[in-house]
């Protein structure tokens, strides 16, 4: 794949994204980006300084990843109707309720793991 076509694709992607995505999803997306950045910072720290409080690192990194995943779940379920997948039973539970439940569970575990 040549560099120019890749650049084209990326710019096209960005343009489409800005045009087509509703405001609500953009908010979720920015939260997801924030999660990725948080995770990356911790990972960098881990690489540069060391893994010493390994449980703390795992808890922090894991919670960043988990937040990302949950936000992604939330996003999938809040997509505009025409793109929303068939979710079966799941659609009966409000997406946000699931989001909150998972987070409660997650932070219970993470707080315990931080030590």
């Amino acid at each position: 794949m040549s560099g120019s076509s890749a650049a084209e694709i990326v710019s096209k992607l960005a343009a489409d994204y800005i045009d087509e995505t509703p405001q609500k999803l953009k908010l979720i997306d920015s939260y997801m980006v924030f999660c990725v950045v948080t995770g990356l910072v911790q990972f960098l720290y881990c690489v540069l300084v060391g893994t010493f409080p390994y449980n703390a690192f795992l808890a922090g990194f894991g919670s960043a990843v988990a937040c990302f995943v949950f936000a992604a779940n939330l996003r999938i379920k809040n997509q505009p109707k025409e793109r929303r997948p068939v979710l079966g039973l799941a659609s009966r539970v409000p997406a946000f309720a699931e989001f909150v439940f998972c987070h409660i569970l997650l932070h219970f575990v993470v707080a315990n793991f931080l030590g």
Partner: peptide, 19 residues
Amino acid sequence: NRLYVSYSTFYVLGTLASM
């Protein structure tokens, strides 16, 4: 997307919990 939702959630939570 269902696959993504279920597996990612399960893995992240399950792994952190198992530790």
